[in-house]
């Protein structure tokens, strides 16, 4: 039987935290994510070398006591590069997803809730945006505003919100017909309260699942853009870019692929477990008592 602190009252979110802590996979995922985040954030302090320090004489060397994860072709320490790369990847992953989340959820909710002509117009706009080639869109942005990492987040976020908006709209359309939403309208609840208190909590499940899918997607998109020379500039790097470079030379230097890949996979797994845990935790009906 679940027994959160019932004396001081409870809310969906407080219950959710309680339920989340009972989900072992989610807790482990959360923990791994925090460790990776902290390590990346503290990269300048804990990294053994400078991320751009080359040791051409050393070249690509396998993992050893001096370079724990080995070095790349230019003799740069891989551990340092993975730590610094994490900064970029997390930054892009979280901020671009946050941008897409905010725009997508609001746009989708409003579109679905208002319905009728507003909905039709808003959805046609999304269709047009979908048809727009992503690469060209980013190139145009770069040409106008110059290369800028913040702009990169915006560009990716501006593309990713489309799918989010569509998913949310579909959910809201079915939710809108639920009697409890009608009851809220009939009580005279204001629009923003209905959206914030009833609609969004009830679409949290799909939002969370889609968010955990978007973060890795965004990380890989960033790698693609960086590969085209539109993203992160060398000697700076990101996990996506490291994986890409590693993949090119994996036959000779396996460690160049394995370690960045491992960092990326652990992050993705953790996100997925955490996402699943959150989805279940936020739905009182799945409570395991």
């Amino acid at each position: 039987m679940m027994k959160p602190d019932r004396k001081n009252g409870t809310s969906l979110y407080r219950d959710a935290v309680y339920r989340l802590t009972k989900n072992r996979a989610a807790v482990v995922g959360f923990f791994c994510l925090i460790v990776l985040l902290v390590l990346s954030a503290l990269a300048p302090l804990i990294a053994p070398y400078s991320f751009s320090a080359q040791d051409l004489a050393l070249g690509a060397s396998p993992p050893g006591p001096r370079h724990w994860l080995g070095t790349d072709i230019l003799g740069r320490d891989l551990l340092t590069r993975v730590l610094y790369g994490g900064q970029i990847s997390f930054l892009v992953g979280f901020s671009a997803t946050a941008v897409s989340l905010v725009i997508g959820v609001l746009y989708g909710t409003v579109s679905g809730y208002c319905g009728g002509k507003t909905d039709a117009a808003m959805m046609r706009f999304i269709d047009i945006m979908y048809a727009f080639p992503f690469t060209i869109f980013v190139i145009i942005l770069m040409v106008f505003f110059g290369r800028n990492i913040v702009l990169l987040f915006c560009a990716i976020g501006a593309v990713e919100w489309l799918t989010m908006a569509r998913i949310i709209r579909g959910q809201v359309l079915t939710l809108k017909k639920q009697e409890y939403i009608e009851a809220a309208v009939a009580m005279g609840l204001s629009l923003h309260k209905i959206v914030l208190r009833h609609l969004i909590p009830n679409v949290l499940g799909p939002i969370i699942v889609y968010t955990t899918l978007t973060i890795p997607q965004v990380m890989l998109l960033e790698a693609f853009l960086s590969f085209l020379g539109l993203g992160v500039q060398p000697p700076m790097s990101s996990w996506g870019l490291l994986v890409k470079e590693g993949a090119d030379s994996m036959e000779q230097y396996w460690w160049l692929l394995i370690f960045p890949g491992l960092a990326l996979s652990i992050t993705l797994f953790s996100l997925n477990f955490l996402g699943d845990g959150l989805r279940d935790a936020l739905d009182p009906r799945t409570a395991k008592d």
Binding site: T10, E179, Y180, A183, M187, R197, R285
Partner: peptide, 16 residues
Amino acid sequence: QMIFQDPYASLDPRMT
């Protein structure tokens, strides 16, 4: 005020 037919649908499942 209105009382709805289906007591399974007229209450928000995520609210106490």
